[in-house]
Amino acid sequence: MIYHRPKTIEEALSLIGRSAWPVSPLAGGTDLLPRWSAGVQDRPASIVDLKHIEDLKGVSRANGDIRIGACTSMSEIEADPLIRAAAPILAEAVGRVACPQIRNRASIGGNLCNASPAADSAIPLLLLDAEVEVATHTDSGATIRTVPIEEFFKGPGATVVAPGEIVTHLRFKPVPQGAFSAWDKFGTRPAMEIAVASVGVAVELGGGVISRARVGYGSVAPVPLRGKAAEAELLGMALSPEVINRCENAAREEIKPITDVRASQAYRRDVVAAMLRRILQRAASS
């Protein structure tokens, strides 16, 4: 393996373009290294380590948006005051990834590019209508295209990022004052747990009814899933027990879980329903 350590996005893109193939961008390595050592994925010929590109790190404000560099670690995001104020569920979700050792290395960009349906940062980003900035190598350096998070995932392990491209940033609008948002993940033990299922809800109220609703589910479909049917049940309604029931049923219908060594399909439906109900009940009382 040949190891490269670019300092700028342009340099990274150009290195990816010119190095011996296959080339792999490397961020925290917490997805890549276990796969290499377990032999489920061959080591690439070249690695381009993105961690030393200043521009890819940290949280900032940009034109009223919150902007996170792709190489920002879960620990940094969790502790970041801007994130805690503007998107508390993102802070919570990344704070529940694995353990300190992993959170210190794992990047949010890696979490998205790895495209596991269980990626913990994905659901909060779906609720936030986040956008992903993807950089492509051009003669002049780099061009950036912006992809809505909902369109980002293409299947387990697959995204819209083409070979040669990298994700540079994520951006989203801060959650407005008074909005409710919550996220929870279910595992069979409290820590070190890849989600059996996860659920996030964001609702804004106007005139006593819900004016904006976002629901998202993790680990219950080939990609982190937006809960459009559940959202439809909420929109324009007050959070009554009947609405919560209907929303729960819609969720059971629209998720497409599988049975694997961690849980059965039916059980995933049950825990999604239970988590969703609890979150909505909390929303109703807040």
Binding site: L26, G29, L33, I47, P100, Q101, I102, N104, R105
Partner: peptide, 8 residues
């Protein structure tokens, strides 16, 4: 703190 098995 990191897991040194996951760092090249």
């Amino acid at each position: 703190v990191v897991n040194s098995c996951l760092v090249l």
